[in-house]
């Protein structure tokens, strides 16, 4: 009985983790492109889509499109209201840098504001991820 109970407890504990991993993924990637000048963010809230190349792991070499909220600002200076959705220690976005990313697959659910997506016209199929956390790798 005891091992079965333990297994049940473990499964119960693991359930939220599985749900979270279905929505989120963590990886290291190189920021390969910031496709245009970042728009001003004093009047508007927006997220901006950048291109990454995954480093290592099963997805190594794969290209990702990631939306960063107000990328002109250091992540630690993002306003309180967004802290549960945007975090990390990165100060500046520079192409060529390696980032440790925690991404969410459900961008539309996480953020309903403006998404500046320069890749929209050429590529709608590649999924856009929401960046929940980004740190220098």
């Amino acid at each position: 009985m005891r091992p079965i109970a333990l297994c049940l407890v473990a499964l119960a504990l693991a359930a939220p983790a599985r749900a979270e991993s279905a929505e989120e993924l963590a990886l290291t990637a190189e920021l390969v492109e910031i496709p245009s000048e970042l728009p001003p963010d004093d009047l508007y809230d927006y997220a901006y889509v950048m291109k990454y190349r995954v480093q290592g792991g099963a997805q190594g070499g794969q290209t990702l499109l990631v939306a960063h909220y107000k990328p002109r600002q250091p992540r630690e200076k993002i306003e309180k209201a967004m802290r549960d959705r945007v975090g990390g220690k990165l100060k500046r976005f520079r192409t060529g840098d390696l980032h440790r990313l925690v991404l969410r697959r459900d961008l539309e659910k996480v953020f309903d504001g403006a998404v500046v997506d320069e890749y929209f016209a050429a590529d709608r199929k590649t999924p856009r991820y929401w960046c929940k956390q980004v740190d220098p790798a």
Partner: peptide, 19 residues
């Protein structure tokens, strides 16, 4: 509704095109 701060010229239609 789809509301897009400052993006009602193009971005809001892009958002609609995704949905």
């Amino acid at each position: 509704s789809i509301v897009n701060d400052g993006g009602a010229s193009t971005l809001v239609r892009q958002q609609l095109a995704r949905r």
